[in-house]
Simulated assay, not measured.
Amino acid sequence: MSIEPLVWTTVCAVDDILPDTGVCALAEGRPVAVFRVGHTQFYAIDNVDPKSGASVLSRGLVGNLGKHVVVASPLYKNHFDLSDGVCLEAPEHSVRAHSVRVEDGRVLVALG
């Protein structure tokens, strides 16, 4: 059984994402929401809100809910854990989380 290597897609420059905000990008043709929390932490999840089908999660509010770093959907206010994509209010509406790395001032995403 062989493991496929991750395909890394450059989505933007680090400075294109203000701290505690997100941007929408395409990784392998899939819309992803990429978030910068503080100055050094980056996360990526699917950008499509599973309840509405709209590509809006990148526009949600970033914050903390207990131990979880989350984004609140701008439509239904559900909270998605940025580390694993789990919807805290309705786990059946969870999204996929993706790998992120920073290299030479660029943000790269690999679909997970």
Rank of each mutant, 00 (worst) to 15 (best):
V14N: 01
I3R: 10
V11G: 05
K51T: 11
A44C: 02
D81C: 07
G38H: 08
R96I: 09
P91G: 09
V109H: 06
T9R: 06
D20F: 00
I17L: 01
V62A: 10
V71S: 00
C12Q: 01
A13L: 13
L108E: 14
G63E: 06
H39F: 12
S99M: 11
G63L: 02
H39Q: 13
H68T: 01
T21H: 10
R30F: 05
C87Q: 08
V23N: 06
S99Y: 13
A25N: 03
F80L: 06
I3T: 15
P74L: 13
G85N: 09
D15T: 12
V14K: 07
G85M: 06
S83V: 13
D15Q: 11
I17R: 04
N47R: 03
D84R: 01
V100K: 02
D81E: 14
C87D: 11
A90M: 12
K67V: 14
V70D: 05
G105N: 02
D49C: 15
V7T: 14
A25K: 03
V62M: 08
T21E: 08
P31A: 07
S83L: 11
T10N: 14
K77C: 04
E89Y: 00
F42Q: 00
H98N: 07
V14M: 04
D49I: 09
V7E: 15
N78L: 12
R59K: 14
L57A: 10
D104W: 04
V48S: 01
Y76G: 06
L6C: 07
Y76M: 14
F42E: 03
A33P: 03
N47E: 10
C12V: 04
V107Q: 05
A97I: 07
V56L: 13
L61M: 13
F42H: 08
N64Y: 12
R36E: 09
E92G: 03
V7Y: 04
L82R: 07
P5V: 05
S55W: 09
L111R: 05
L82W: 10
D46G: 12
A27T: 10
T40N: 12
G22M: 07
V11Q: 00
A13I: 04
I45H: 10
V69Q: 13
H93A: 00
